Amino acid sequence: MSDFRKLSDTVLASPQITPEIISEAKELGVTAIINNRPDDEEAGQPAGGEIEAAAQAAGMDYVAIPVTSAGFSEPQVEAMTEALAGTQGKVLAFCRSGTRSTLLWSLAQAAAGKDPDAITAAARGAGYDVSPIRPAMDMFAARSKG
C-alpha cells in the first residue's frame, strides 16, 4: 500500500517505493518517477535500477536526483526544476520518508518563482515541514524575480 502525498495537482511525494507500487502510481496518472534517495542508503532498500526498470516497463519516465545527508546543492535544485518542467502528467518523487523529495520540490518551486508561503502551506498539507529550508526558499524566490 502506498503513502503518496499530494504536494500539488501534478506532484506527489512518497516514502520509499518498490517496483510493485509503480502500477498503483500509473493508475493515479503518474507519468514520471523522481528518485531522491541514493542507492545503498539502508539495508534492504530497493535499488534505483529496479525502480527505473519497473517505471520504464510501465511507460513512465525516471530521473534520479539523489540527495545525501550532506544536504541540497544548487545543481540538485536545477535538476529537479528541469525534471518537473519536462514532464507531462503527474510526477511521483520519493526518498526514505518523502521529506527530502518535498524539500527539493519546495526549493525548485521557489526557484521557479512560486510564492514561498503557498509552497509551505502545500507541504504542510501533505504532512511535511519545510521550515528548515525556508531561508533558501526565500532566496531562490527573490532571485527568480530578478
Rank of each mutant, 00 (worst) to 15 (best):
L92K: 02
N36C: 13
M139H: 11
R5P: 01
S69W: 02
A110Y: 01
T18I: 07
A118M: 04
T99C: 02
I65V: 13
V91T: 11
A136K: 14
D115W: 01
I21C: 14
S73T: 15
M80D: 09
D61A: 15
S73E: 15
W105V: 11
S8A: 14
M80E: 10
K90W: 03
F140Y: 15
I21N: 14
A126E: 04
W105F: 01
S144C: 08
T120E: 06
G29D: 04
G49E: 04
G146H: 08
P135W: 13
N35C: 08
A126V: 08
A83P: 03
A13L: 05
V30W: 03
M60Q: 03
P19D: 12
D138V: 07
A112L: 10
S14P: 00
E42P: 00
R134V: 12
C95P: 00
A122T: 08
T99L: 07
E42I: 12
K145C: 14
R134E: 15
F72V: 12
P38M: 10
V63I: 14
K26Q: 03
Y128W: 03
S97D: 05
A110K: 03
A54K: 08
A123I: 04
I22D: 05
A141M: 13
L28I: 07
A32R: 13
L103F: 02
K6D: 10
I17K: 01
A43F: 03
E78F: 10
A43L: 12
E42H: 06
D117S: 10
V130L: 13
E82F: 06
A123L: 11
V11N: 02
S14I: 10
A141C: 13
D3T: 13
D9C: 04
V77A: 07
A108V: 10
A122G: 05
P15V: 08
E78K: 11
K90F: 04
S144G: 14
L104T: 10
G44R: 00
Q88H: 11
T10M: 09
A108P: 02
L12D: 00
D115P: 01
M80W: 02
S23R: 12
G113T: 06
A136H: 11
A93H: 02
Q109K: 13
A93I: 12
N35Q: 05
E52C: 05
A58M: 12
R143T: 15
K114G: 01
K26G: 04
E24T: 15
I119Y: 01
P19S: 13
I51S: 03
